[in-house]
Design a protein around this nucleic acid. Structure first.
Length: 167
DNA sequence: GCCAACGTTGGC
DNA sequence: GCCAACGTTGGC
């Protein structure tokens, strides 16, 4: 199991939108490193931290999980889509996506300022939110634990897994 | 394979 | 809206 962080612009798609939908394809990723992470390393059930970029303030806002592993991103060959890439076709898709399921919206957002205040400590090696433009990035188990503690996450076990509730 | 030009991201 | 940092493209 790996841990992840994804960025999204709340004006386009927010944690609140994900909560309403329950789950959603994570489409529109057009960065090779991010694509490779999704395609090669993201697995069902992996916990995913959700970060709002281009927000006031930019912040870590919630937790999700991978509910479907990588498959072709059909928006890439859709001429109507703003994510259209002429180099991608249904026969030879260039981009992929995973589906993400909502788990929790943090009671307390953790603003970028606060994340940065740990840049010399617990978050030292994080491809720092803000410094990196990676829209899908891996997070170490230690960083994940630390970030969940900062946010007061309620849906995570001590070993960094998603806590399932009985229904 | 280098690197300049260009486009995009994302904080401010 | 600005602009710095970064990724991608394409000529050579």
């Amino acid at each position: 199991m790996r841990h992840w962080l994804v960025k999204t612009e709340p004006d386009v798609f927010s944690i609140a939108d994900l909560r309403v939908l329950g789950r959603s394809p994570w489409d529109g990723v057009r960065n090779y490193q991010a694509r490779n992470s999704m395609r090669d390393d993201m697995r069902l059930g992996d916990p995913v931290l959700v970060y709002h970029s281009n927000a006031k303030p930019p912040a870590l806002v919630g937790l999700a999980e991978v509910v479907r592993e990588a498959y072709p991103d059909h928006t890439s060959w859709d001429p109507e889509s703003s994510y259209h890439d002429p180099a991608s076709t249904p026969e030879d898709p260039r981009w992929c996506m995973v589906d993400i399921g909502w788990v929790e919206t943090f009671g307390r957002e953790v603003p970028l300022d606060e994340l940065r205040s740990h840049a010399d400590g617990a978050l030292a090696d994080m491809p720092l939110v803000g410094k990196s433009r990676l829209s899908v990035q891996p997070v170490t188990p230690e960083q994940f634990r630390f970030l969940c503690d900062l946010a007061g996450a309620r849906s995570v076990t001590p070993t960094g897994r998603i806590r399932r509730r009985r229904s």
